[in-house]
Design a protein around this nucleic acid. Structure first.
Lengths: 242, 242
DNA sequence: GCCCCAATAGCGGTATACCACTAACGCGAC
DNA sequence: GTCGCGTTAGTGGTATACCGCTATTGGGGC
């Protein structure tokens, strides 16, 4: 598992076991090491990462809130299914919220914020020039996050978190679209925001998100893990083989 | 197990302590019995509702995910502040998501769904005619929830939950706008959705949400609990009285 | 051999207990 | 009196242990 670097490392406050369990599980899910529909048994996971069930349970609850895990009451947990319909819904919502973010960013951004956004754009450009796929994905995600940050709305930021998780998941499985094209779209979006041109920022953001829909949907159809029933999955019990 | 409906259908499965703690706390918060900024001490709350800290902690985590509670790591919890800026952000996001919900509902609603939505509208009409404020609030909330339901997007539904919580909170403190006017707006929105007129549904939804912004903001300015610092709040410790 | 039933054990839900950290307190020195 | 430092206890974080429910299973009756 790739050490995701940027760990809070030495100086920062020690990470709680709950946060660690959350981070590791989330990573495993978006990396598809844990597949959609796979059952998650508290005791097994806890033993595996050498923590007790308490922090592990809290990590699962958090993942549920983010939509990566489904909890069936009295039954157990499983990795959320991710169907073409979910991908469609994801893009529906992104076309609303990313446009809102772009609009608010264009309205509210100050010079310091624009500088930060510009830096993210440069990162993305550099990664795109190098053709470094993982770096491109990370830089593009950072660019989008920076726009949300400029929107300066804690509510919007919190709503975006589940979307980011699903997007990472989606893009892990694909090369996404042509990086150069995406980068160009980011540039024009940046320009509109920097000019405080609300309407242009909104329309660029919409076009940008919408452009990703078709390839993503196509990709989603290609897996098509057929109907996972959460209740059914958690009904099974593995019995000790004799 | 051909029929899977047998289990939860009857008798309503017993509510877990976690769910009960969650429900009670949420109610207390939206009723403003627990005020924004108020500290929440796990042991005290647990003792008060006679459960252990485990289910209580999980309830707090869930409330955090919903935005009603702020958790400061290693420090504790408090009821989220709710500032005019938060109200503004709430309406920004609602103007995006409720419009999306209306649009999708207009596209996807079938006859059975429209019947359910119509029933909610009738409820709201009846409550409005009676002038029963609490019933009006509940019926209006149910009408909006029904639209989201028609949109048939689990993601959208999950994103709306934090918004509903904040809206309830907001409306608990106010008489909201003129109920008759709201009811009329609901009727035209219903008509557009029933006619599968996507664009009209979207524009009515936008107008409807936007109409509530000014009065809500005004209300929010009237409390203006000035700056609550979560870290500071959770730094305090009540010491045994001498 | 097939079906039903009692015994078994997997697993989520919860309580209790302990640990670590640190803010509040108070005592002593200046 | 004021300041500083050691002490104490309040609080979140975590481990362990137990409970109850039910899927599984294997045996006994048909």
């Amino acid at each position: 598992m790739a050490a995701d670097g940027a760990d809070d490392a030495s100086g920062a406050a020690r990470e709680s076991l709950r946060d660690r369990a959350y981070r590791i599980l989330r990573q495993r899910i978006v990396d598809v090491e844990l597949q959609p529909g796979q059952r998650l048994v508290e005791r097994d996971l806890a033993a595996e990462m050498e923590v007790s069930r308490i922090p592990l349970r809290e990590a699962l609850r958090r993942l549920e809130a983010e939509g990566l895990v489904v909890l069936v009451p009295q039954r157990g947990a499983l990795v959320s299914p991710f169907t073409p319909a979910d991908v469609r819904d994801l893009f529906d919502v992104r076309e609303s919220l990313e446009v809102l973010a772009a609009r608010l960013a264009a309205e509210r951004a100050d010079d310091a914020g624009l500088a930060r956004l510009g830096a993210r754009l440069d990162d993305a450009r550099a990664a795109t020039a190098r053709g470094d796929r993982p770096a491109i994905a990370a830089a593009n995600a950072a660019f989008h996050a920076a726009i949300v940050d400029l929107a300066d709305s804690p509510l919007l930021t919190s709503l975006m978190r589940p979307l980011d998780a699903r997007l990472q998941w989606l893009f892990r499985l694909t090369a996404d679209r042509d990086p150069g094209e995406q980068c160009a779209e980011h540039e024009e979006l940046y320009t509109a925001i920097a000019a405080h041109d609300t309407e242009r920022a909104a329309s660029y953001a919409l076009r940008h998100v919408a452009a990703g829909r078709a390839p993503s949907l196509e990709l989603a159809h290609s897996w098509s893990h057929p109907d996972i029933d959460p209740v059914k999955v958690t009904h099974t019990r593995r019995r000790a083989r004799r």
